[in-house]
Design a protein around this nucleic acid. Structure first.
Lengths: 230, 230
DNA sequence: GACGCCGCTTGACAAATGTCAAGTGAATGT
DNA sequence: ACATTCACTTGACATTTGTCAAGCGGCGTC
């Protein structure tokens, strides 16, 4: 593991104010590995061996039951994932696959648990990180429960628009089938939802989307600070 | 606050191994209060003043956007709620109302944050509690995303059946309209879903439900350890 | 360049879910 | 005892969402 990557990880809020000594101990037995796209990293029923840190690339967390599958969230670098599972010391609860070639640091879960009891700063940071993750899922859950498919898409586009600098055109960061799954609908339905949004100034060309009537789109989407803000 | 209630709270896992001194400090400025049924305790947009501990009664956490409202979860005694918000020091993110007359201990959120940095045992317990809550929402989210309304009802009944000692009849712990909202459907739809389950051995009489063909119901519900357990 | 693969779209249809309106029955208050 | 309220149910219908099948078009392989 090179210094550049080590520093990248070190500067994550979660690790930022733990002692150097504890940080080094955390890395004992860790792997930094590059995976190609479309690789299953772990399945939701596996025991949690590692806390994962996505350094580069893109990872999808998804769940399955009874032949159905749904994207729960997308991980974008640089970020940790499955912290809660690493702490609980049970199964992952979610499956993960790479969407692109990805570089991932895998830290043994037991190192995390050890650091938790040895380093109070780390414990405090973990509390905040988990509280943050918790609210993230709550937002996703609200989004799913209180909005229709078209509204979810409209709000997704508004969020991307803002994130990508409010420029005229935004780029969908994932394939449409993954986007559909993330928004809780079928790919067919996503296509139709885009058509529905046409009168509201949404033009789609491949993975490029332009928004020409922001106000109209917002009227339809009715964005909510408690769901869409981050 | 009487000793009985204090001990009840003290024995919650979250507080169980913090020092007596810190526990007493936690309670400075706390209120123990009884609320009648159907009282709004706080709204999702309020700043988080208190960590709540439900001693007795029943509380509903719900969310609203755009005239729609959905039950997110039910709190049953004895349990804390809105820990994540108390830590984050932002808004509650969820609204709360009493469903029955309820006795609630309200601990100032800043006491919680103070205890977090002073008592490492408490910080560790908080981490576990939050990880647990996180998985709880993830399960609810999976349930919502991967199942139909009838399946959610069927699995709900199976869980209640198990919790209530696998006896012949179980009792719905909430009004049907609240149950409907919790399961993400309208009351009308819940009624029809019960009718749909009739051929699978589900008989409903008011709030009493009996399950006569457990196997058949399980075949329909296809319960999943990662969604329904715990 | 021809072929096949794959992601996406579209149409036709089916299933799931919501809405509106009316009606039942039990609980409550006068 | 009567009226009122309210939760729940039921029916008819609308909307939303999913399914299946076909076709388009880009992209890589041979």
């Amino acid at each position: 593991m090179r210094n550049a990557e080590k520093e990248t990880v070190r500067s994550l809020e979660l690790f930022s104010d733990m002692s150097d000594k504890h940080f080094e101990e955390l890395l004992v037995g860790s792997f930094l590995q590059r995976f190609p796209a479309s690789v299953i990293l772990f399945s939701e029923t596996d025991l949690t061996d590692f806390l994962h840190v996505l350094i580069d690339g893109q990872v999808e967390l998804f769940a399955s039951t009874n032949n159905r599958e749904g994207t729960m969230t997308l991980i974008r670098p640089v970020a940790t994932f499955v912290l809660a599972s690493a702490i609980t010391d049970g199964v992952y609860q979610l499956s993960a696959r790479t969407l692109q070639s990805s570089q991932i640091l895998m830290i043994p879960a037991q190192n995390i648990r050890a650091a938790m009891s040895e380093d109070r700063k780390f414990a405090e940071r973990s509390v905040r990180e988990l509280a943050h993750c918790y609210h993230g899922v709550v937002r996703a859950y609200k989004n799913m429960k209180l909005r229709t498919a078209v509204e979810r898409l409209a709000n997704y586009l508004l969020v991307q628009h803002r994130r990508q600098g409010e420029s005229h055109a935004l780029v969908l960061p994932v394939e449409k089938r993954v986007l559909a799954s993330m928004l809780g609908m079928t790919p067919e339905n996503l296509s139709r939802s885009f058509v529905t949004l046409k009168p509201y100034g949404v033009k789609v060309d491949g993975s490029e989307v332009s928004i020409t009537k922001l106000k109209d789109l917002e009227t339809l989407a009715k964005p909510s600070a408690l769901i869409d803000n981050k």
